[in-house]
Computed example of a mutant assay.
Amino acid sequence: MWFTGEAKFYVNGRVECNNLIYTHHRKPDEADTLPHKIVKKYAPSNKPYITVWCAMNSEIYIGPYFYNGEMTPEIYKENLEKFVKELRYITSETEHPIFIHDDSKIHSSADVTAYLEKEFPHHWVGTGSSYANWPRHSPDLNPVNFFLWGYIKSRVFKTPIQDGNLDELKERIQNAFKNVTKDLLEESIEDYKARLERVEYNEGNLVDATVYGEELDYSKIRAWGMYAWPYY
């Protein structure tokens, strides 16, 4: 199973992916009450950024691939072609990998779905698949989102990036990926399996049970859509 995803890395420390934002802000003061400091209205950033794409399973990752500006369906299809080419080098003809991406709008174009059906016939998960759809608004289930981007962010922004330097940002991201070990990947996939069990227990609700180290009752926060969840 190959989990995939793209994210915007901003020079100020903010990271955005589909339905999820890792903010650049510090933990709020203890006087601030929850959950109102958790669910925030989405506001786009005007800071410079680069778009990063990666695929991972329990053993290795492919990428990262870098793009300037927004990812489009056309660019995304070119990205997939690049990924498939690399994937063919490390898989045999008898293997049937399962490709997984989320419900982002750029993933649902006719060209993208046709290409995935050609390369992964009845073995891909996403919008338009005859195999399985990815559950909507569920970044808490994709290890690329709940593990990988947060891990990369934590290493990239240990110190501030000066003067909005995108070249430095790209270099830091590349170096951070070199620290993603097989053990980390294995642990994230095991966590994914545990999260599936928690989804059933929570009747489909969010499964990230702690924010700022405090337990939250997600039945009282039934908001998603264009909202940002500031995980740290």
Rank of each mutant, 00 (worst) to 15 (best):
M1N: 08
M1F: 00
E6G: 02
K8S: 00
F9D: 01
V11C: 13
I21E: 08
T23C: 08
R26I: 06
A31V: 13
A31N: 14
D32I: 14
P35E: 02
K37P: 01
K37C: 14
W53T: 04
C54K: 07
N57K: 12
S58K: 13
E59K: 15
E59P: 04
E59S: 14
Y61A: 07
G63M: 06
G63N: 09
Y65L: 13
P73I: 00
E74L: 09
E78M: 14
E78A: 12
N79M: 12
N79F: 07
E81N: 14
V84E: 06
V84L: 12
V84P: 10
E86R: 15
R88C: 13
T91A: 06
E95W: 02
E95P: 03
H96R: 12
H96E: 05
H96P: 00
P97M: 00
I98K: 11
F99P: 10
D102S: 04
K105M: 09
S108P: 08
S109L: 04
S109V: 02
L116M: 07
F120V: 06
W124M: 09
V125A: 04
G128P: 03
S130K: 12
A132G: 02
W134M: 06
R136A: 15
S138K: 07
S138L: 02
N145H: 09
L148P: 10
W149E: 04
I152W: 09
I152A: 05
I152D: 04
S154K: 12
R155Y: 03
R155I: 06
K158E: 05
I161P: 01
E168W: 10
L169R: 02
R172T: 03
R172I: 01
R172K: 15
I173K: 07
I173L: 08
N175Q: 14
N179A: 10
V180M: 02
V180F: 03
T181D: 04
K182R: 14
D183K: 15
L184T: 10
E187G: 09
D191A: 14
K193H: 13
R195N: 08
R198F: 04
R198G: 00
R198S: 08
Y201A: 13
E203N: 14
E203F: 11
N205S: 11
V211S: 07
L216T: 02
D217E: 07
D217M: 05
Y218I: 03
S219A: 05
I221K: 01
R222S: 08
Y227M: 06
Y231G: 08
Y232W: 12
